[in-house]
């Protein structure tokens, strides 16, 4: 394998601050990519992300001409292509919202109606859906939750790419940087633990269902969890059924 590590391609190499002798001869550290050197407005941010994604794909393609090419290689190429496409789509979105003179709108999507309906009274009021009758008791609230976000609602948002963050780039980070054979971890160099395993997987599930696709093999797809409770829907339905079968608390 050659050229698979993209981290040093991001900026020109330079000597470390302490001089070469401080780290041993020939040791080089990369410059911080320009993208990270200062706070950037959305356009520069999006351009940097697109350039980074393009660089990753280029590096992969340059290294992918060996005999190991196969299904896994092809899937990885498709995934990198998808990450690039999503960054380019985001860049286009930022450009168009800037050129239209509007303040950058974080989201262009209409919410799935059933999800809006199930939010608490305060949010429901702001969603101008306050005409729905109030319901009391844990059982009915749980029931409302469990029936609120069916597969249909997810299907409705599936076609539209999420605009507020890059879900595919997040998946790539979790799979590549956080995954170990013993669990998931904070970042490379750290040890895996149950806490990070739980929330890396929770985040992976969330981003898969927000993006409408999972990076990697189809078997990577995790169960969807309710975004408010981080509880899978089968458990939520089970809880609703349990409380429905009991009288409401006084």
């Amino acid at each position: 394998m050659r050229g698979r590590r993209g981290c040093c391609r991001a900026g020109a190499a330079r000597s470390p601050p302490g001089g070469e002798e401080a780290y041993g001869a020939r040791c080089e550290v990369p410059d911080l990519p320009a993208a990270l050197q200062e706070a950037r407005p959305p356009l520069q941010c999006a351009e940097a992300a697109a350039a980074a994604a393009q660089g990753s794909l280029d590096a992969f393609l340059a290294a992918g001409d060996d005999a190991t090419a196969g299904t896994a290689q092809e899937l990885a190429r498709q995934d990198l292509r998808a990450v690039l496409d999503s960054t380019l789509s985001h860049l286009e979105h930022v450009r168009s919202s800037l050129s239209s003179g509007a303040a950058a709108q974080p989201c262009q999507l209409q919410p799935p109606p059933s999800l809006t309906r199930s939010l608490g009274p305060q949010m429901r009021a702001s969603a101008a859906l306050a005409t729905e009758p109030e319901s009391d008791g844990a059982a009915s609230r749980l029931h409302a939750l469990s029936s609120a976000v069916p597969g249909k609602a997810q299907q409705a948002t599936k076609d539209a790419a999420p605009r507020m963050y890059n879900a595919l780039a997040l998946q790539l980070w979790i799979l590549v940087a956080c995954q170990t054979e013993l669990g998931l971890r904070d970042k490379p160099g750290k040890s895996p633990d149950y806490y990070h395993t739980c929330y890396c997987l929770s985040g992976l599930s969330s981003s898969q269902h927000a993006a409408g696709r999972a990076l990697g093999l189809p078997s990577n797809t995790l169960a969807a969890a309710d975004p408010r409770l981080n509880v899978t829907y089968d458990r939520l339905h089970a809880a609703a059924a349990y409380f429905d079968s009991h009288p409401p608390l006084p």
Partner: peptide, 28 residues
């Protein structure tokens, strides 16, 4: 701060909640 895998949920799962709001609630 550096990226941390667990914020994949603590921050990343905020967006499905925000997306559930009507668009004008997120428009400055």
């Amino acid at each position: 701060k550096l990226a941390d895998g667990c914020y994949s949920f603590w921050q990343g799962a905020l967006f499905p909640l925000l997306r559930a709001l009507p668009l004008d609630a997120l428009t400055p």
